[in-house]
Structure formats: structure tokens, C-alpha cells
Amino acid sequence: MGTSTLTIVAPQTADTPQERLERLYDACRDDVYAYLASFLGDAGTAEEVTALAFERAFRRRRLFNPRRGSERAWLFGIARNAALDELRRRRRSTSLRGELPTDGWGSDDHVEDVVRRATVRDALAELNSRERDLIALKFHAELSNPDIARVLGVSESNAGTLLHRTMTKLRKACDEQA
């Protein structure tokens, strides 16, 4: 009768920070890259900063505190700080114009799709950096609103309001572009 208790407890306590981070890496690798590529607007720099972000996360894996938010929010906080550090470094030396990386146009793409995507891309360019950051966190990092709030250091309702305002502005910009 007592054997069932043992089987429940063992797997959870065996979870080391290293193993948790391995799982986090597998789950978030592409999301972190997508967020940084979108945020920084340069694929090459995004690759460097993605590697740097995971390097920092591996180094600080024991400092993660689950009471301060999810692992995903913690990781994206590190990634965002690494990206901001990169922006500061580039500002001191040289700068590259940020633009959403594109995979190019496929020959099978419909003209409507191409034009619509270009319209959204141009509308995105009209947003300021903080708004583009928010879009990248929501749609490219695919973070939940509570996680976005955690990454930005604001309340959940504030994050929701900011996202709503940004989407309203983006829709307006799309309408004007069209």
C-alpha cells in the first residue's frame, strides 16, 4: 500500500539545475533566437547574442528563484539584458539599422501575401523600440502576458495595456500603409 508514495516523490527531487536548464534550452532555443532576431533586427548579431544569453543562463543556473517567476521569463530576462548590452556596445562604436530579418520571397507566394507582409513590416518599422520589443516578446518569443510582465519588470495589467496599445497602433499603421 505504501509503495505508491515513493514513486511520486523521487523524480522531482532528482531534478538538478543543470537538468532543468537542459530542458529549458531544448524548449526555448528557437524562441530565444526568434525574439532576439526580431528585437535586434540582424540575424548575425542575434546568433551571437543567443549564444551569449544561454552562456549566461548556464553560468547563473543556480541563481534561478522559482518564486520570482517562471524559468521561461527568467531566461528571456537574461536574453533581453544581453541584447540591451549589445545595443549599448554598438551605440558606443558603430550601429546597424535594426530591421526584421526576412527569408526572402518564395516563388510560390501570392502577390497578396507578399504585399500584406511588406505592409506589416513597414508598419512595424513605425513602432518605437519598446513597442517592437513587446511585439517580439508576444509573437516571436511566444511568451504569455504574465511572463512578458516579468521580463519587462512591470505589472501584468500594465503589460496587457501596453500590448493592447501597441496592437492598436500597429493596426492603424497597417491601415495607413494599405
Binding site: 526568434a34 526580431s38 544561454f54 526584421l100 507582409r117 509573437f139 496592437m167
Partner: peptide
């Protein structure tokens, strides 16, 4: 618009994924 933004999500290259 949300779905369009989602489809514009950048993807890492295979080479970068292997290296990482």
C-alpha cells in the same frame, strides 16, 4: 494581424542550430 505577425517569426539557420 496576430497570425501574420506569428508567421513573420525569424527562424535560426540549421548551421547555427548545430553550433549552438
Amino acid at each position: 494581424l496576430s497570425r501574420e505577425l506569428q508567421t513573420m517569426r525569424p527562424r535560426p539557420t540549421d548551421e547555427f542550430v548545430r553550433t549552438l
